[in-house]
Design a protein around this nucleic acid. Structure first.
Lengths: 121, 121
DNA sequence: GTAACGCATGCACACATGCTTATGCAACCA
DNA sequence: TGGTTGCATAAGCATGTGTGCATGCGTTAC
């Protein structure tokens, strides 16, 4: 198992793992998830975003900065506002899949967690 | 848009966002990504895992604990070893998609980051 | 010009993470 | 039974993260 025809899970080494972790960390904070999901419903400004997700404006700006550097969103100046949107449809797909997977996994947690792991309580 | 036929991104509020963030945080650390990817190639014990990803055994145990509580992996006692494996095929799919999405997004970052965002350097 | 709005940034602080070292506990072996 | 292997846990430390506050810069309005 080392000829690698597509995505070889066993071959995911330090570099790839770091890249994946860095990107997935965009979805590892509730505030960013909410920001992204709101942007998924349509582009809007920072202030609108702040009001929508119930955060302070500086906090939103900071998270948007993170999301920008990760290439997930883009900001465009319109007058004195800056309108943010998802960078491309792929981001929306990623978010939807994250939600879907989470719901799927959450189902297995309600009822028999201890049954799954022999070791812990 | 509030009848909700599938996954309504705009309706992702505090609870869902927290759940998603919590689950996605499993993939937000390089060590966990490597652990999961190695388990994707087949179940194995903690010591094997530690050697494979180049971490200390306690560190691996700790991350496995996190992954267990998130419902991503399961541990089964076999003799004096504990063999871990991905909880279900869905986890493998999640990981593969995370890698795929990351690679896709990483492409847009190499070349024109500043072009994407008007505001920052 | 000055004033008001919108967003970004710097700073400080509380909190969470991840690793290492040392130790405890359970299961095989002689 | 005592020793050894394998894993989990506890404690400690360094680092990263997210937020609120205050402030600075750019843009529009007057």
């Amino acid at each position: 198992m080392s000829h690698g025809h597509e995505v070889e899970l066993a071959d995911v080494h330090a570099d790839t793992a770091r890249a994946v972790a860095e990107t997935m960390q965009a979805l590892a904070a509730p505030s960013r998830v909410r920001i992204l999901s709101h942007l998924g419903a349509g582009a809007c400004s920072v202030t609108e975003l702040a009001a929508a997700v119930g955060m302070g404006q500086p906090a939103v700006s900071q998270q948007l900065r993170v999301l920008r550097h990760l290439g997930l969103v883009t900001g465009t100046r319109e007058g004195r506002r800056v309108v943010y949107q998802l960078h491309d449809p792929h981001v929306r797909a990623l978010l939807e899949e994250a939600i879907s997977h989470t719901e799927h996994i959450r189902l297995g947690l309600n009822g028999h967690v201890a049954e799954a792991s022999v070791v812990v309580a």
